[in-house]
Simulated assay, not measured.
Amino acid sequence: MDLVLNIADYYFFTPYIYPATWPEDNIFRQAITLLIVTNLGAYILYFFFATLSYYFVYDHLLMKHPQFLKNQVSREIMHSVQSMPWMSIPTVSLFLLEVRGYSKLYDGIGEFPYGWFQLVASVLSFLFFTDMLIYWIHRGLHHKLVYKRLHKPHHIWKIPTPFASHAFHPLDGFLQSLPYHIYPFIFPLHKVVYLGLYILVNIWTISIHDGNGYKNEKLFNGACTKTE
């Protein structure tokens, strides 16, 4: 995430927002910038890809289903818009640790003896690690002690649209994203690969709410259907 931070500082925050006397490596400045950039990026990804999916992929006949709620799309959007800033707070805390050098992220392929092979292997490892942990976190969120308080709000949308993809209780949303953020603290990962995977994960989250995600549940960790 330091790549995004440096670009944001160089082209926008340093010349236009922050005083020149405030060092770019100041932890409070970094936290503020990451909070702004993370939220702005999340909103752009959400509205752009959810809108594309809604108009070009989503089966609008599903909206005639008796369990499709009145004004559901606008309610999904409102829920997402309200939840994402709260989800971003713990996420930014982890981004800040990455930027401060506490992760195993690297920016030079030559830093490791196996080079490109290790980079490809890290992508496969990332996908396996995150999908496995999300499966168990998701199962845990369906436990009777936490389901009604944390995860049930997401299942208001029994017939979801792509705009429901981020309509979580903030803690629920963060917990399900946690494996993506803890991976680079445990295993080496290229910075650009991590950023690309982060974007793809957001697109994937939208895609499993496009009305076709349920068909793929047996193959992939898709949107679940528990509705109690």
Rank of each mutant, 00 (worst) to 15 (best):
Y194N: 11
W136V: 03
I156G: 01
G222E: 13
P15V: 12
D172P: 07
G110N: 14
G115K: 12
A167W: 09
E111P: 04
I36M: 10
A223K: 10
E217H: 13
G211K: 01
P162Q: 06
N212H: 11
L141S: 01
I203P: 00
F126I: 01
P19A: 08
A8P: 02
A8T: 06
A31Y: 04
T91Q: 03
S88W: 00
V73A: 04
F12M: 11
L219I: 10
I109A: 11
G222F: 09
F185N: 07
V146Y: 05
L45Q: 08
Y106S: 10
D107V: 12
F163T: 10
H181L: 13
Q67K: 15
S122G: 02
K158D: 06
V120Y: 11
L133I: 02
L124M: 12
L69K: 15
D210Y: 02
H190F: 05
H143R: 13
D131C: 02
I77L: 07
T205M: 12
R100L: 14
F185L: 03
V81E: 05
Y214K: 13
V192E: 12
P15Y: 00
F48Y: 00
E217L: 13
L127F: 02
V73T: 09
F129P: 08
P162I: 09
F126Y: 13
V146A: 09
F49W: 13
H155I: 05
A167M: 10
D9C: 08
D59L: 10
I156M: 03
Q82V: 11
S122E: 04
F68M: 06
G101S: 06
R75D: 15
A42V: 04
Y102I: 02
D59P: 09
I156H: 02
L141N: 07
N39V: 00
R100A: 14
F49C: 01
T225Y: 12
S165D: 07
V146P: 06
E217Q: 15
H181V: 09
I32N: 00
T205K: 10
P19F: 05
Y43H: 05
D131L: 06
L52A: 14
Y54H: 10
L175Q: 08
L197G: 05
S207R: 06
E217K: 14
L119C: 11
T21S: 09
K104C: 01
F168A: 05
I159F: 09
Y183T: 03
E98D: 07
T91L: 08
Y194M: 11
W157C: 08
T33S: 11
E111T: 14
L133F: 00
N202S: 14
A164M: 03
T225D: 14
T130I: 05
R29S: 01
N221L: 15
H190V: 04
A167K: 10
S165Q: 01
W116S: 10
L52T: 08
L62K: 15
K64E: 15
P15M: 03
K218S: 15
K215A: 07
I208Y: 06
Y43T: 01
H143A: 14
G213I: 03
I17T: 08
H65R: 04
E76D: 04
V99R: 05
